[in-house]
Simulated scan of single mutants.
Amino acid sequence: MSEDIPEADRAPDAPHPRMTDRLFGQEAAERAFLEAWNSGRPHHGWLLTGPNGVGKATLAWRIARFLLTDPPARADTLDPTPGHPALPRIRALSEPGLMLLRRGWDDKGKKLATQITVDEVRRLGGFFGLSSGGRRVVIVDPADDLNPSAANALLKLLEEPPTGATLLLVSHQPARLLPTIRSRCRVLRLGPLGLDALSAAVEQAGGDPAAITPMAEGSTGAALRLARGGAEIYDKVADLFATPSLDRGAARAIADACAGKAGTERLEATLAALDRLLHRAARAGLIGVPQDAEGAEAKALARLAPHDVAARAWARIAQEIDDRAAHARAVNVDPTAIVWDALARIDAQSRRV
C-alpha cells in the first residue's frame, strides 16, 4: 500500500498492528487460543472483543503470524517461527495465505470508505479459490464496520468455512454484530491493561509512558490519543456541561474544529471525549462522582448524574449518539453537523435531569 494512503485499521502516529511484534497484558487471551490450538481442534471463527486500544488487532496479527509460519502441533507461545519466509510477506500484505478486510480507500472521493462493503467480502471468494490447500487466515478489522450486506456475506463463510480457514474478527462493540455471527465464533475477551503493560505498550507504539494519565483507562490507543490533544478536547467538552446553560459559542467552536478532511482525527477524538463523559456520567449516577474526577469534569458529572435514573438515561444516550454518528459518517454527513447533533442531544437530556 502507498504510504500516502491512510490505513483504516491504523491509529494516527502509531505503527500498524501487523508491525507490532509484542502484545502486553493479554496473556489470558493468548493462553486461551493456544489451548484451543493444542487440543487439535481449533475453532475456525474467532471474535476478539474488548475496549478500543487494548491490543485486539495486535493479537489478531500475532495469531495470523503463528498460523502462517508452520506452527508445531503443540505450542507454548504464539511467537512465530523465527526467520520464516512468510513473515516479511505478512508485513508487506503480500502473503498468499492472508486476507485483510477493512474499510477501503475511495480513489474518487480521496478518502477512506465509511464501511466495509459487500464487494470487499466478496474478494474472499477469489482468495480462497486461488489459495486452495494449506492454512489461510482472514482478519476483519473491525467487524463493526461491516455494512448489512457485507455482514451477511461473511456469515455464509462462517457457516460453511473453507478447509484450513481461520477468520479473526476484531470488534469493539460485539453487541452491534449479527447474533448469528457472534454465535459462530469463539470469543476472546481482552481487558484494560495494567499500568506496567500499558507503559510498555505505549513505549512500543512510539509514545511517552510518562504522559499516561488515568483517563487512558488501560487503553494504549486512548493514552496515545490523549497525549496528542485528546485530553484538551475532553476538558473542553466537560467544561461545556459543568454549568446549567450551554455556551453555544464554545459548543460551536468544538464542532467547527472537526470540519473538513483535516478534521477527521479531531472528529474521532471529539466523539471519544463525548463517549467518555457519558459513560463516566452513567457510572457516577450509580456509584457517585469518581474520586479521580477534578475541576470541570467533577462539576459536570455531579450535575448530569445525581441519581440512578439519570445513569440509565446517559447509557442510552451514549449508545444513541454512537449509532447516529456511525450512520451519519456512512452517508457522508458533515463532521461539524455530527458533533453539533451529539452536543445538542446531550444538552437536551441534561435539561431533563
Rank of each mutant, 00 (worst) to 15 (best):
H279Q: 11
L271Y: 03
A253C: 05
G249H: 10
P214A: 04
I212T: 05
G288L: 06
A255N: 06
A282H: 10
I287Y: 15
A272V: 04
E294W: 08
G229M: 00
W314N: 02
A211I: 02
E232M: 04
L301Q: 08
E320V: 13
I287K: 12
A259Q: 11
L278W: 07
E232G: 14
A262P: 06
T264Y: 04
L286T: 11
R225W: 00
T243P: 05
A255C: 07
A293Y: 07
A281W: 13
D239P: 06
A222H: 00
D308I: 03
A272F: 04
L286M: 13
A293C: 05
R312P: 06
E268Q: 09
A284H: 02
R280M: 13
T270A: 05
P244D: 12
L278A: 13
A255S: 14
D239F: 08
A305S: 15
M215L: 15
L274Q: 04
A311D: 09
A255R: 02
D308C: 05
A255W: 09
E294V: 13
L271C: 07
A300M: 06
E217F: 00
G263R: 04
T213N: 03
A251G: 10
G249K: 09
A269I: 02
G221P: 03
L246S: 09
G285P: 00
R266L: 05
D275W: 03
G230N: 01
I287T: 15
G288T: 09
L224Y: 01
L271P: 08
A253S: 12
R303M: 14
P244S: 12
A298F: 02
H307C: 10
G218C: 04
A238F: 06
A273Q: 02
A253G: 08
G295R: 07
P214Q: 06
A255Y: 09
A300T: 05
A269N: 00
G285A: 11
A255T: 08
F241Q: 10
I254S: 00
G218M: 02
L278V: 10
A298C: 03
K299N: 11
A222F: 00
D239N: 12
D292G: 04
R324K: 13
I212N: 02
R324Q: 15
A242I: 09
F241D: 09
H279M: 14
R316M: 10
E294I: 13
A310Y: 10
G230H: 01
A269T: 03
D256Y: 07
A211H: 07
V237N: 06
I317A: 13
G295D: 08
F241T: 10
L240Q: 06
A216R: 00
T270Y: 07
S219R: 06
G230K: 01
D256W: 08
A259D: 12
L278Y: 06
I317R: 15
A257V: 06
I321K: 10
R283Q: 11
Q319C: 12
A311W: 07
A250S: 11
A310K: 12
L240F: 05
R303D: 04
A272W: 05
A284M: 05
D256F: 08
Q291V: 14
A310G: 04
T270I: 02
D256E: 15
V289H: 04
A310S: 15
A227L: 00
R252Y: 11
A313F: 01
L226A: 02
E265G: 02
L301H: 07
R225L: 00
L304P: 01
V309C: 10
W314D: 01
D308E: 14
R248Q: 11
P290T: 12
P244I: 14
A281G: 08
